[in-house]
């Protein structure tokens, strides 16, 4: 059994355990198999969709992160760092604020694809991991400014607080419809990225040699941009901006499954799902007055981790 398969099986078991725990654990103690109406509502209508949403959003972000890292040959690449999440949020905010909320997922995906295209074009020849991250910082700040502008110009200021709150990232109160929406986006992204897997493997040799061993780099780039956009757009439309899962998941998995970018994809998705499912259980159990936002928790944990990885890379002269 390959290391990648072993890692995947372990992560599947861990994910199932986390999803099971999410049904039991919460502010109210319940036995999920008790057969009364209140329990059924809490467990199956509230906790299960929420836990599934957290897992699928995490999986989508983990997969997008692993694919972007392979494409850009950069262990710091991630939908959040590169600005895809910021642009996805911008697309969704525009849709919400100007009264066509039903198109929010499509807008999020389209804007994430635009950001991915820009960052790929600007960052394709970036020297070293840090310069690419800087391009992402620029794009993210720009997206933040545009979100503020959109909110500023929105015709219905009453919804502003809700929208700002939403961009912080949460899976609270999500329904089975949200599960289906983000699940469909993950499926689409996974199919697109699966077709790019061999190209990502070839890019281990760098751009020049990858083309020379027969990889079609234009095709690989297009598939990853669209796949990462579908994953990020879907995740952001449903859960707002949740950063760092896309960096943390592949980083954790490399220690177990090795460095081959193709063999990292599926374990990274599973790790992202497991991470976010656990993080969501944690925010639900924390005894705070108003619940800690999942996106805030991810940033509180992920920010320092990102800085540590970046510092280690810098110390090694950019060598992954």
């Amino acid at each position: 059994m390959s290391a990648s398969l072993r890692t995947s099986l372990a992560l599947i078991a861990f994910s199932i355990a986390a999803l099971g725990a999410a049904l039991w654990l919460g502010p109210v103690a319940v036995d999920p198999f008790a057969n009364d109406a209140a329990t059924r509502t809490i467990v199956w209508d509230i906790r299960l969709p929420r836990a599934l949403t957290a897992w699928i959003v995490g999986a989508a972000l983990g997969l997008a992160g692993a694919a972007l890292q392979g494409l850009l040959r950069n262990p710091l690449a991630d939908a959040g760092v590169l600005g895809l999440s910021g642009f996805a949020a911008l697309g969704a905010v525009i849709a919400f604020a100007f009264g066509f909320a039903m198109f929010a997922p499509l807008m999020a995906i389209a804007f994430a694809a635009a950001a991915a295209l820009i960052v790929t074009m600007l960052g394709w020849r970036a020297r070293g991991p840090a310069s690419l991250a800087l391009i992402g910082v620029g794009l993210s700040s720009f997206a933040g400014g545009l979100i503020a502008l959109a909110l500023n110009l929105a015709p219905n200021p009453g919804a502003l607080a809700d929208l700002v709150n939403w961009t912080l990232g949460s899976v609270e109160g999500r329904s089975i419809n949200d599960v289906m929406l983000v699940g469909a986006c993950l499926l689409l992204g996974a199919i697109l990225i699966a077709f790019a897997a061999r190209g990502l493997q070839a890019l281990t040799l760098g751009e020049e040699a990858a083309a020379a061993i027969g990889a079609n780099l234009l095709r690989t780039r297009t598939l990853v941009i669209l796949g990462a956009a579908a994953c990020t757009g879907g995740a952001t439309a449903v859960a707002g901006v949740i950063g760092f899962v896309g960096i943390a998941a592949p980083h954790l998995v490399r220690a177990l499954a090795g460095h081959d970018p193709a063999r990292l994809l599926w374990p990274s998705a599973l790790a992202g799902g497991a991470l976010l499912a656990c993080a969501d259980i944690a925010v639900r159990l924390l005894p705070t007055d108003s619940e800690l936002k999942l996106g805030v928790a991810a940033a509180l944990i992920g920010g320092p981790v990102f800085a540590l990885i970046a510092a280690r890379l810098a110390a090694r002269g950019g060598d992954a």
Binding site: R73, L205, E208, A209, A212, I213, D260, P261, A320
Partner: peptide
């Protein structure tokens, strides 16, 4: 399939 090319500075981006 017709020509194998070794660039001047071959890279291994990931430590495979």
């Amino acid at each position: 399939l017709r020509a194998a090319y070794l660039p001047q500075r071959p890279q291994a981006i990931w430590p495979v």
